[in-house]
Computed example of a mutant assay.
Amino acid sequence: MTTTGTEDVEELLRAACDQAGIDARDAEPIRLGENAIFRLPGGIVARIARPGQLDAATREVRIARWLADHDIAAVRALDDLGQPIEAHGRAVTFWHELPEHHKGTPAQVATALRRLHDLPVTEPNPFSALEPFVRLDERITAATSLTDDDRAWLHQHLATLRGSYNNLPAGLPHTVLHGDAWVGNVVATNDNQVVLLDLERASIGPPEWDLVSTAIKHTSFAWITADDYRDFCHRYGHDVTTWNGFTLLRDIRELRMTCYLAQHAAENPRAHHEAELRVTCLRGRNGPRPWSWSPAS
């Protein structure tokens, strides 16, 4: 029986499906973690949020429906169902399963972001303002595999970046953002439809935030080639690395990537070396970029 913490997520899933009138037999786990995801019969996917995320799950469903109304290809919440369902204190949402798909290319990310960022920001809409530092304090605190000195430095680095963000240089007009736009969250189906996944961080804010995610794949880690990055900039129509606010958003994104892995390294020893490497790089102890980080799976 699969568990997350002390909760039996399979029992939780059955309870939510009973409320929704959905068949939970033969449920197949897709991913088990902070958010547990299951494949259900009939082309349905259930997503069980971490505790305390009822409001966030409600907002994510509203965002998915808003994007559908604006002809943006993104994951689709089931219609004709009041969502989320609350079961055992957890929020459960139900989605249409995507057809066969694979990670998008930088070019496909650029095309998807261009269309998303071109949407008019009109009222009413389900979006809140971008929160670039959400959950970082708690992730650092939970990163118990790191030394006390490293965690203290990360807290201080976070405080410094927060202060600098209050004076972020002017850039492109604020738009609808995906919030976590990388090739794992922008996928291509086998019929070449490009689809946005994971709408949890969708918000209103500087479009540079979405663009930095791909820029650092080249400038910070050399995960994509210079040609791929030039093509990304050409298709989107802007090179975020030429903006004088780039280094600040780069540093925030690198910190987010480090804190996510460092928190999970506390429970997954295989991630510990990579978490230490990332902190060492942020602290300036491993030379200039590009750094030899390994992409998180």
Rank of each mutant, 00 (worst) to 15 (best):
I204H: 13
T258Q: 10
H272C: 10
F246Q: 08
N125G: 12
T242S: 14
K103S: 06
R283V: 01
W66T: 03
P290I: 09
P169C: 08
W291Q: 03
A181M: 07
H70W: 05
P51Y: 14
V279R: 01
N244G: 10
N268H: 06
L154V: 03
E123F: 13
T2D: 14
A74F: 05
C281R: 00
D198G: 03
R253Q: 09
A112L: 06
G284N: 10
V9Q: 15
V121T: 04
I204C: 12
H157R: 14
D69V: 02
E208I: 03
R114S: 09
E34G: 15
A202F: 14
E138P: 10
T242L: 13
L98N: 05
E138F: 11
L40C: 12
R76T: 08
R114M: 01
E276P: 01
H178V: 09
Q156Y: 08
T160C: 07
A64G: 01
D191T: 12
A265G: 15
I85D: 11
I72D: 02
D79C: 06
T175H: 07
A49T: 07
E28G: 12
G171K: 01
L255D: 13
E138R: 03
A57T: 04
H178R: 07
S164L: 12
G184L: 01
D231P: 07
L78C: 10
L277E: 02
F133C: 05
D150Y: 10
M257F: 14
P295M: 06
A262F: 00
D148K: 12
H88D: 14
S213W: 00
E276G: 10
A129I: 01
D79A: 07
I30A: 08
L199Y: 06
P173T: 10
R139F: 14
L172M: 12
N268D: 02
A107P: 13
E86F: 09
V61M: 05
P106V: 03
A181N: 08
D118C: 07
D23F: 05
H88V: 02
G43D: 11
L40H: 08
P290A: 06
G179Q: 10
